[in-house]
Design a protein around this nucleic acid. Sequence first.
DNA 1: GTCTATACGATGATAGAC
DNA 2: GTCTATCATCGTATAGAC
Lengths: 206, 206
Amino acid sequence: MRSDPKEGDVGEASPTRRGPYAKTAERRQQIVDEAYRLFATRGYHGSSLREIAAAAGMSLGSLQYHFGSKDDLLVAVLARRDELSSGAAVPPGAGSFADHIVAQAERNEDIPGLIALYSVLSAEAVTADHPGRDYFLGRYDLLRADYAAELTVLRDAGRLREGVDPAIAAATIVALWEGIQLQWLYTPESIDAAKTLRSYLDLVLT
Amino acid sequence: MRSDPKEGDVGEASPTRRGPYAKTAERRQQIVDEAYRLFATRGYHGSSLREIAAAAGMSLGSLQYHFGSKDDLLVAVLARRDELSSGAAVPPGAGSFADHIVAQAERNEDIPGLIALYSVLSAEAVTADHPGRDYFLGRYDLLRADYAAELTVLRDAGRLREGVDPAIAAATIVALWEGIQLQWLYTPESIDAAKTLRSYLDLVLT
DNA sequence: GTCTATACGATGATAGAC
DNA sequence: GTCTATCATCGTATAGAC
């Protein structure tokens, strides 16, 4: 995956770099915010760079100076997503594993646009040459590893149901979470994502 | 959702319509077959109408005579998908519910391109104006209703674990199935979709 | 270093000739 | 029905103003 047309990558203010003022970081932030909003609304392919540039109050060329390609902009938006909804990883040993997951799922209901963006991109990025592929590959691995580690701890404490494989249960949680959120996006009135997740966790934990 | 540039919609031979010979149905079938193959290979946005037309041995204009828009072609491909892998619905009372689902999941591993297409489209189509939205809305409702009905029968036979809600379990199966297939598309070597599904069903059924 | 202006090839869509 | 223009818009690339 190509990246890094400029320095910092994510978009933090880089006070140590190059001269008295660095408007670049702020401009990049503006662009990412608008791209984030438009991607969440219309999807990745449904949003044009000209649209995003206009929303951020600049020309197309200026946007492309900060982000060399639409792909670069996408990975910046994904990084921004992690920034905003951090706490997805499980702090080991802190509080109830199930409560933590359900609470996060409930919080997700406040940001349907973001969930939709994530769902769209995670499926779009399956194709071999997609710029977001590496991001989702790493993210799934990380989530499964986190959950499997937590479930292994619970198993050793005798709180995992007999015969349940922590690795399979971890993949199940990730899969169920994404799948039920997708159904919720279609029919929010008839799907309760948090309740469905809780129902599975109650089945597996004791 | 716009649709129906011509008559039948799906692509069946329409012998009663308009004149002695109806090449239209066959032409439409050729187009849908090639579009199906290319969508499954390169994705929806990755395939151009010119490509599809060339693969079907005709010009762009000719293809667009049969399908007024790329959206129309998409819904035809989705309908074709249901045609080919019918049996997704559960024949009531026939054989084991769990075996049926697991067997279907195993068969899906032979058509990864199609699974990828389905995953991409199901997420893309969440946006309000997407041409495939109604298709997936109806499909999720149908699947959940089928599974819930089957699970209710099993519950009345005392074969559903105590405390499990058939409706929630039905939504869980659909969600888990789609979610685990997506993970499998990313890392087929470390994910066993059929086994993961079986693991959940074993947990719920007795 | 930041930005505007302009152009390129490819896309989905449309109109009209045969 | 099938075809060949033709169109606006897409992502991208480059030249040059300040």
